[in-house]
Design a binder for these strands. Structure first.
Lengths: 220, 220
DNA sequence: ATTACTAGCACTCGAGTAG
DNA sequence: TCTACTCGAGTGCTAGTAA
């Protein structure tokens, strides 16, 4: 049954544009998947129940919207194949500098994270993050990076609250080594947070809204 | 059953090194796939019958060798996802110039091919091919390119024999536009043949064994 | 047209087990 | 230990059909 779900998502994504919305009948999906209309209908019900899609049934044709969970399926399969086939390509992202408001600083300065950064990344990060809004043309690449494994940093508890796990990806900007960090449980956002042992704003002479290119190395 | 085959190939490829050989018991495969030993055994038999793998049964442990057909499955799934997710990256290959012996010239000069090259590629090719041996580090990328769709050129018959279909990929070398051509029915080789409307050896001042970089554009 | 329920059947899975 | 056969059970398919 899992295979049907995967295949259905592939087809729905192919038919939906970048807006992830598609008008398709169960018979239409059945034709593409070379299965019966009844089975296609069951699959759609299943996808809906399991929150892979949303659906609205206007008059005749149903409208299907792919949810994040569907995209995750595809991007993680892509990454799986990437790593199995040892195609560690480097990804190039481009975006511009945003004002970070300082929450990043609050989080990464926590001892529970800092210790692990030093151990696992081999750097003692400058206590602050550089926030970069990735240009929308690079959304697909960013999604692909996000769904890769990366370097895992465990969550922890302090006296007051729990802090979730994050994952890091080695990267460089103009030759300066840095790391992208993503909260492990969060949905897609086009803003990435970057840490480095250097103060990147000084090192790279960056101001808000400056354009920059970012190279991510996924080695698995 | 198809899904099992796909999954088994993924696991076998992951466990096998770049030599595509792996020692694994049916119980071992079963554990990885979270299925019973019996089912794993059946899958292995199936893979063998359908020429996805070769197997030899020495004393205790069986040795499984992944055949081209298995790699094709993985690389074409990768390409599928690539095109569905609209991640048309450009691939960079590097290799060195080889002496082509002139068979390439014989083939591409055939009217049946030439007409289609002009129609579908928009160039009137110089009647000869540049043969490039791709460096082995780029094997994975070359395989990935090969399993993509490309521009299809139909096969045809002349008075004497039949000529098979080929597929072409737009590429450029030092800014000069060219096309990689692959026979549609042939197994992997690390030599690629390149056509262009220019005589590339002159245009790029190439001699045998000269190193060159090749950029392939897969747009789907 | 649609979607999707029910019924019946076919296929695939895993337990048991032989070699 | 291994691989792989048989067979019963259960899953998931399609056809028929209702709404």
């Amino acid at each position: 049954m899992d295979y049907n779900i995967y295949n259905a998502i592939k087809i729905l994504k192919k038919k939906s544009g970048s807006k992830n919305v598609v008008f398709i009948s169960s018979a239409g999906l059945a034709r593409e998947m070379k299965i019966s209309q009844q089975t296609a209908s069951r699959i759609i019900i299943n996808l809906y129940k399991n929150k892979f899609i949303d659906r609205t049934m206007n008059n005749r044709k149903q409208k299907i919207t792919l949810l994040e969970k569907s995209l995750d399926v595809l991007y993680s399969e892509l990454n799986d194949l990437y790593s199995i086939l040892e195609m560690h390509q480097n990804f190039e992202l481009s975006g511009n500098v945003r004002n970070g408001l300082g929450e990043g600083k609050y989080y990464i300065s926590k001892e529970g994270y800092m210790k692990q950064f030093e151990e696992k990344l081999g750097i003692k990060p400058y206590p602050g993050t550089l926030n970069v809004k990735i240009n929308s043309e690079y959304e697909n690449i960013l999604r692909s990076v996000r769904s890769a494994d990366g370097i895992h940093i465990n969550g922890f508890k302090d006296d007051e609250r729990t802090f979730g796990g994050v994952k890091c990806f080695k990267a460089h900007i103009d030759g300066i080594k840095c790391f992208l960090i993503f909260p492990e449980r969060s949905s897609y956002t086009d803003i990435v947070e970057i840490i480095s042992d250097k103060y990147l704003r000084d090192e790279l002479k960056l101001n808000d809204n400056d354009e920059l290119k970012l190279n991510v190395d996924i080695d698995n």
